[in-house]
Computed example of a mutant assay.
Amino acid sequence: MLYQRVAALHGAASRPSPISQLREATAAAHLSVEHVFADFMAAPGPYLTPFLAAQLTALTALRAHCARPAIEEDGEILDDLIQDLSNDLRGKVIPVLPVGRALDPEAVSYLTLGSRLGTEVIRRHLVHTGIRVPSAFGAGPPSLAWQAFRARINALEGEPAALDTVIQDACRGFSLFRAAAYLHGFDRPERTS
């Protein structure tokens, strides 16, 4: 009872930070993407090329859905990822997803930086399994860009509509990764158990 009274007096202190709200609100969408790529994580060898192709399709769609990056560095990270994936796939023609409504630039930054952080986890997994590491997984994690992003999102404290837009558009962005996964053969009914 005392905790509830103190929390009521300090309402803002009891609420999670905007970055925590973003993570929590997009967790299910994020996990659904991890689920569709579970075959790759379980046995990366036979799925490496389709995984790279799906990532290229998704990131290219993400770029097409963002008229302007939140900040130039985030746009450069996205462009570098796309270029590295293109190089890894040696010019293979990759199908594209249709472009819909534009995504909030901060949602695109969230997905771009999250993808870049995720490549470090995948790189370690590939090294552990003895598989050649593609150049798309070679760059280090964007820790300074991630810190700057966190600060920008936390600055949305008291702006629930702006934060809600980022959350909704991040979830829409995760759906691009799921669509790309399906397009490249992941999580088809005949492959699930």
Rank of each mutant, 00 (worst) to 15 (best):
T26V: 04
A54F: 01
D84K: 09
I77D: 12
L126F: 02
R63I: 01
D88R: 07
P141F: 01
S32Y: 01
L183C: 13
D164A: 15
A145P: 02
D74P: 00
A102D: 13
L78A: 14
H30N: 14
H184R: 01
R123D: 08
T57L: 09
G11P: 02
S109W: 13
C171H: 06
R152D: 02
A107E: 09
T192I: 12
A70K: 01
V6A: 10
D84H: 14
L117A: 08
Q168I: 03
L144N: 14
F186V: 13
E120N: 02
L163E: 11
R5E: 14
A53L: 09
P134Y: 10
D84G: 03
D79V: 04
A155R: 04
S86G: 15
I131T: 13
H30Q: 07
L163F: 07
L89P: 03
I122F: 00
P44T: 01
N154C: 12
G158Q: 03
L113W: 07
P142E: 14
P46V: 11
A139T: 13
T49D: 14
V36N: 04
Y47W: 15
A180K: 04
V108Y: 00
T192R: 14
Y182P: 00
T192Q: 11
F40H: 05
T129F: 03
L176W: 06
P98K: 02
A155T: 05
R15S: 11
L85C: 07
S14Q: 01
L89W: 01
P46Y: 13
P98R: 03
A25G: 03
G130F: 07
L117M: 15
A151F: 04
H10Y: 10
D80S: 14
V36C: 14
R116Q: 15
L89H: 01
I82G: 07
E159S: 09
F177S: 10
P46D: 09
A181C: 10
P50E: 11
T60D: 06
T119S: 11
L103D: 04
R178Y: 00
V166W: 04
S175V: 09
V166M: 07
G114V: 09
Y3L: 15
Y182G: 13
I94F: 04
F137A: 13
R15C: 13
H128M: 06
G91A: 08
L48Y: 03
R101H: 04
G185Y: 12
H125Q: 12
S143T: 14
L2T: 06
V133I: 12
R188D: 10
L117H: 02
F40Q: 05
S193W: 05
D169C: 08
A8Q: 07
H65M: 03
L2P: 00
F186T: 04
S115A: 14
L117K: 02
A67F: 00
R123M: 08
F51C: 09
G100I: 00
L126V: 10
S32M: 05
A70P: 05
